[in-house]
Computed example of a mutant assay.
Amino acid sequence: MISKKLAKLISTSTLALALAACQSQTLLPKRGAEYQSVKWEHQQPGCESADCPAVNVDTLRFLTERELNPIIEQRLLEFTRAQDDAPMVDSLQAYEDAFLQQAEPGWMSYLQAKVREQDDQIILIELSSYLFTGGAHGMPGRGFINYDVKAKRVLALDDMIIPGMENAFWEKARQAHQRWLKHEGLEENTEYLEMWPFQQTENVALGQKAVYLKYDVYAIAPYAAGHPELTIPYSELKGVLRPEFLR
């Protein structure tokens, strides 16, 4: 649940938010794990102005595969830290309380977890965040959780790739980057290529038809480009990915 004002804030840096009630809806996919969509938006207590600080959460609660629930919460909380070594609170509620207590007018925080794809092998969860604490614009974040249904664990990139084939994987990613540049009409823009060269990312996902690589803003493109996503077809990853993950 994203209020109309929140959507406007993310796209235009408008700072007003409307108070929304907590909602929970059970989703029953035709195939895969069952989960609830849990959403709420709270303003700073006592604030009645047009630019009240607010926290908006749009997350998941799994009814099956329940071990995913604390993992999702922890990953969302990682987005709330200003620095990687900064302390992290132990719950979304604790984060909301602390944020609203110290927030200044116009501040807002948005956290979302959604099931992007799932089947009997992989549950792919995409994570999103947006933090505004003043300035020209806020800072968005993205991430993935690749959950192996049979192994009951979250997969890291090292779990997906055949040992010794890491360089081959990133070469395939570099080729995907070239395709993206061509699609954007940037493959011959020397100035752009010097300013925004290819680099690796931690955000790698096992999609049903391809491997996705998601980039943070300012990683391989300017802020206005958002979060570029590269795709590598599984046909290009034979001998690179572990056979059980070729789909």
Rank of each mutant, 00 (worst) to 15 (best):
T26Y: 08
A168H: 14
M165H: 14
V38E: 00
S37K: 08
Q199C: 14
L181W: 06
H177V: 06
P105D: 06
S235R: 15
T231V: 12
P197D: 02
I232V: 12
E184S: 14
L230C: 07
L28G: 00
I2M: 14
P105C: 05
G164F: 11
A98K: 09
K39L: 08
I232N: 00
S13H: 12
H42K: 14
Y212F: 14
I72N: 02
E48G: 06
A7H: 14
R174I: 01
S109D: 00
G135D: 00
A151M: 10
F198L: 05
G207E: 00
Y192G: 01
I162Q: 02
A221E: 05
W170R: 10
Y192K: 00
V57Y: 01
I71E: 05
G143D: 08
A7D: 14
T231F: 06
T190L: 13
E73K: 04
L100I: 07
A86C: 06
E34P: 00
E67R: 13
I220K: 07
L6K: 03
E126M: 10
L17W: 02
D148Q: 01
A86Q: 11
L6Q: 04
V149I: 13
I122A: 05
T64K: 06
A7S: 15
A98E: 09
G135N: 07
Y218M: 13
F62K: 05
G46I: 09
D51E: 13
H183A: 14
A210D: 10
Q199A: 06
S109K: 02
R179K: 13
W196N: 03
M165T: 12
A103C: 04
F62Y: 05
T14P: 04
P29V: 10
L193N: 09
L181Y: 11
T64D: 02
M88T: 08
A156R: 12
Y192I: 02
L241P: 04
E73F: 05
V211S: 03
R242K: 15
H42G: 00
N189W: 11
D120T: 13
G32S: 09
E78H: 13
E236W: 06
L230K: 02
G185D: 00
E191K: 13
D148L: 04
P228Q: 08
E244F: 07
R66A: 06
E78S: 13
F99R: 02
Q175C: 08
Q74T: 08
L193H: 08
M160W: 03
S49M: 04
Q208S: 12
G135M: 02
W180F: 13
Y215D: 07
L155H: 03
K4H: 10
D120N: 15
I123W: 03
E96F: 08
G185T: 10
